[in-house]
Design a protein around this nucleic acid. Sequence first.
DNA 1: ATAATTAACGAAAACGGTTGAGTAAACATA
DNA 2: TATGTTTACTCAACCGTTTTCGTTAATTAT
Lengths: 346, 346
Amino acid sequence: MNIKKEITIYDLAKKLNYSPSTISRALNDNKSISKKTVKLVKDTAEEMGYRPNVLAAGLRNNKSKTIGISISRINRHFIASLISGIEETARKAGYNVIISQSNDKYKNEINNTKALYDSRITGLICSLSMETSDYEHFKQFTDKGIPIVFVDRVPNKFNSYKVVIDNYSAGYAATKHLIEQGCKRIAHFAGEQHLNVYEERKKGYLDALKEFNLPIEENLIHHFKTLSFEEGKKMTAKLMAMTNPPDGIFSANDTAAVSAIIYAKSKGIKIPEELAIIGFNDDPISSIVDPALSTVSHPAAKMGEISAKRILEHSKNNYDQSVSEVTILNTEIIIRDSSNRKKLLP
Amino acid sequence: MNIKKEITIYDLAKKLNYSPSTISRALNDNKSISKKTVKLVKDTAEEMGYRPNVLAAGLRNNKSKTIGISISRINRHFIASLISGIEETARKAGYNVIISQSNDKYKNEINNTKALYDSRITGLICSLSMETSDYEHFKQFTDKGIPIVFVDRVPNKFNSYKVVIDNYSAGYAATKHLIEQGCKRIAHFAGEQHLNVYEERKKGYLDALKEFNLPIEENLIHHFKTLSFEEGKKMTAKLMAMTNPPDGIFSANDTAAVSAIIYAKSKGIKIPEELAIIGFNDDPISSIVDPALSTVSHPAAKMGEISAKRILEHSKNNYDQSVSEVTILNTEIIIRDSSNRKKLLP
DNA sequence: ATAATTAACGAAAACGGTTGAGTAAACATA
DNA sequence: TATGTTTACTCAACCGTTTTCGTTAATTAT
């Protein structure tokens, strides 16, 4: 088991009788090196099995070609798609992607951002943890001119790039859709209200009710810790046991919405006739559940792509850090059988 | 917008009147530095806002505390859970995780592994792309003593660590389960046969049939390109249109199995009475589909955890690279309504 | 023909840690 | 008392690139 020695630009320099500077420039297509030499250098680099050491380059430039990601957890469909979009565009540009999961813990997010900083990332893409309401730990980046792109779950009081969907409009549209299907008493499964996404979805819901002169009933609005399957099931049970149960549910995510469908079915409640349901995210489960769940689709991969591009552009042009450029992407209401009462009409 | 200067160990050294070496050692808890000094150094480091530059350390050590991952694509439940497991254990040990997606293209896998190598990763965790059947591009790691852990989709002819499930036994058990439910003509949705996972699942299927003296009918065995929803649906349609259709399906993944359920339901075929179905992976969709899909559960996060630990151990102990240590994890058959005929009996 | 410009490359100093070898003082041992 | 051992540091080289200044020779302008 003998370990082969690494080939460096010095080895190339010695072999070709050039200085390391020339080799470096040739490899980077510096125009002050003749095309002939560039070709020669690149060919022998290939031939000798030279592989650049990005750590050395990174040290010298005080920046590695790396994008850092801080998210809650990977194994959720939306997040996985987001990361997929980031990775794809980053890699095309020759950048690596480092991921870190907060598991929705504030403390983890702090430690992770530190670790990412220590790697001298070119930029950070972050979707906040559930618990985060203080943003001090992001200053280490802005202090050093390192761009941050917040995506989906973003802070309202922090100057930086943001890539989001219009949660308000989506919440409004989802609720309006239920109203148009004839729902009069629509419940809302809401998420943590200090997170912009859930706060805005709820606002949209409330405004739609107002718009159509439907009363806002506080006992139909429930704030969930995690919008999990279990939570959703329990809440659906509670709601449907009311003397005057709701005839519609707008859930801030699909998991809870699906749990509502499954619970209602098990109790013989007809969907959508007695209870129309719409979720949020367009998770794979939403098209599999029976009846299929209406929902709001997120352009997750696209959001990742745009976020990555923000970082790449910034590092090219060195934009003014103090500018907070917000990108708002369109959502789409996907109507399936869980809410489509009109389809049932002759 | 003025960018703050970075604090280095030289700044700490100057401030404390120590040499940089002492600072470095103190920060790394080297025992040749007095506890008093260590505390002093760490405290002022904290106070001055010192953050280590892992690029510099990595350059010096010719290895960054980073684990590289090469997988097909992130946004699949199994892969996302796997990565989640890797990230969690890596981060606990102070390691970063770089991900790269091949999108199941051999060429991408080659480029990605090069990029990972260039980052001087401590080790590589890889689940092969669909197209990979040549392993030359992994030699760059073993040549340099960098450990590789293949996980799930592993090469059979390459010396390295491997973390897998017993696909053969799982395939056997899944098929046996259908047989025990009374199925006589069981179809198999198989994947690409040069991938160990699909090859072995099929072998298990075949051996179970033999064991129970059921005939092997080639027209019930179908090899899929991607085991997608559409492929599964088409194939189910074809199978159920036969004059003598199968009474059971063992699908090598859940997506195709779910598509079979949905297709059969749409055609009024009773599940599991007329057609019993079992899938593979225990994707979230499998418990949501109605009737719920029986399946084989993968300990995905656990596999990630073990893979990461292999890398960490290796880098601590510098094990003999030529040893190919294989870890085989248990799977579990999860019986749900899509195959549970006995439940229907009084 | 001479001055000015340009093209093509080289020397050497960073970048921020790590580490083997060395040292001075304090302490223990024979 | 002389010697050996520890303790707690320091020195300086090194990791592989990049980049700022040069330098030299060739080309162009005057």
